[in-house]
Design a protein around this nucleic acid. Structure first.
Lengths: 199, 199
DNA sequence: ATGGGCATGTAACGAGTTACATGATTTT
DNA sequence: AAAATCATGTAACTCGTTACATGCCCAT
């Protein structure tokens, strides 16, 4: 087969996060990596399964991880990956670089912004859906933090979990505030103090 | 059946937001649309310039907007776009649909999570960068809200601006809290209450 | 008059997505 | 044993990006 363009391009964002997950020492399959990555979703939207499979393959090609086929759960064969020293250097370098701004796409805020294009019921539905989603995130995050236990290894994870809890609580309060304002149909009351102070 | 190449696929997310921006009635060029879109960046990360050019072209092909060439500022010719009734229906329908979860990629939270791969100075830098970024967002957002003035037309925009201010204030407080914890190198103090109560 | 920024694009690329396919394992 | 779910992938596509190109306009 034709060897792909010789430059084994440096890992993508997703690739780097996978390296990060492998930096905790375990040897993981693509599927397991995806499950781990899901636990970052509170502050880092999870990639698609297929993306994980492809990325981890590229990481192996680039020498950032080593791979081997193993048999698990009886007959089932799967590929598992382990971080190499090259891989660890790569994540470290990536993380040490300047962060760049967060990416944020907030469909509910967008709907409020374009409120003149929605009837009250639809907007209401969007708000409610967001509230439910926040509730879900909060309870999931609380569960996760509980699972982390007292292991010193997860000190940073728990720090981030605390950050996330604050964020989702604020978001919940804010969206409820917005809902109230819209219910009242109030205009003058829709100023800063209403929603900002809640959060 | 194979999707015909002739079928002008329905607009992308970015396409729909552009339609939304055009729903305020103005006839705008791609460049102007990009500038408008930048003002949504507080809750909806702005697309690249080139993306706006391409999307708006596709919108024109699909009949969601009408386009015409005009001369502006002397000799310069440019294409300006106006929302069609088809376009308005499309945004309305898009917005009325169920929101789907927000997309979030928070590089600083990620760095904290992977803190074991960074030395203290680099982590510190990331935290500081984020604080500066939040400051910037806050002042930009305050400016923007001021510019919106008392125009009834921007009622929803101001509502969202208030939401955003709350969010960025919370984020700022949280990141400062994290910074403090890291400075102290404290472990036991890094629990929930620290960051959650701040936000 | 020229150098820097604004305005208007084009081209190529890559990351990430949805949809599809398939065998194993568990549940009913 | 049928159904559902888990696990492991593959294929095709598209969105959005960075990088490039170019003419106009304004300040020094």
């Amino acid at each position: 087969m034709a060897p792909s363009p010789l430059a084994p391009a440096s890992p993508t964002q997703t690739g780097h996060t996978l390296l990060g997950l492998l930096s905790f020492g375990s040897e993981l399959s693509a599927y397991e990596l995806k499950r781990w990555a899901d636990n970052l979703r509170f502050f880092w939207s999870a990639p698609a399964m297929s993306q994980v499979y492809r990325e981890v393959e590229r990481l192996a090609e680039g020498g950032y991880v080593s791979s081997r086929r193993v048999v698990r759960d009886g007959t089932r064969e799967t590929t598992v990956y382990r971080l190499t020293t090259a891989g660890e250097s790569a994540v470290r370098a990536w993380l040490a670089a300047s962060p760049g701004p967060p990416v944020l796409k907030h469909p509910v805020a967008l709907r409020v912004f374009f409120g003149h294009l929605l009837d009250a019921a639809d907007l209401r539905r969007a708000i409610d859906a967001h509230r439910a989603w926040c509730d879900r995130m909060l309870s999931d995050l609380e569960d996760l933090r509980r699972e982390l236990g007292d292991d010193e290894r997860w000190r940073n994870a728990k720090l981030v979990a605390g950050w996330g809890l604050g964020y989702y609580r604020g978001e919940l309060a804010a969206v409820e505030g917005i809902g109230d304002v819209l219910d009242v149909g109030a205009v003058g009351a829709a100023n800063d103090e209403g929603s900002a102070d809640i959060a």
